[in-house]
Write a protein that binds this DNA or RNA. Sequence first.
DNA 1: ATTCTGACAGCAA
DNA 2: TTTGCTGCCAGAA
Length: 110
Amino acid sequence: MDNRNFFERVYEVALLIPHGRVTSYGAIARYLGTARSARMVGWAMNKCHTPGKFIPAHRVVNRNGLLTGKLHFGNSTTMQQLLENEGAVIENDRIINFNQVFWDPSIEIG
DNA sequence: ATTCTGACAGCAA
DNA sequence: TTTGCTGCCAGAA
């Protein structure tokens, strides 16, 4: 197993997130089999700045639907704007209709 | 090899 | 209910 395999898995799942949908780090981690490595998923997102591949990291939030990683988008409003542009309703850095736009890979895919 | 850190999640007070 | 601590996995120093 390559070390990059884990990151690639995370990226792959992130790319599978439909437009206007969001998921949580834990959900992705569960889908990958490592349910307790949700932190790794977030960290993989930190490395998603790799040029050449677009990772919709803005569609990945924590289990509370809170935009915890908005600070990593340069501007604190970028992540929110992207999500709102896709139909998500965000208020106070939190996705109001999180339950509606939530997309669980372990259910939708496998 | 050891230690620290991290865009989380779960449990305890 | 809100706040805080611990556990967990993987990578970097």
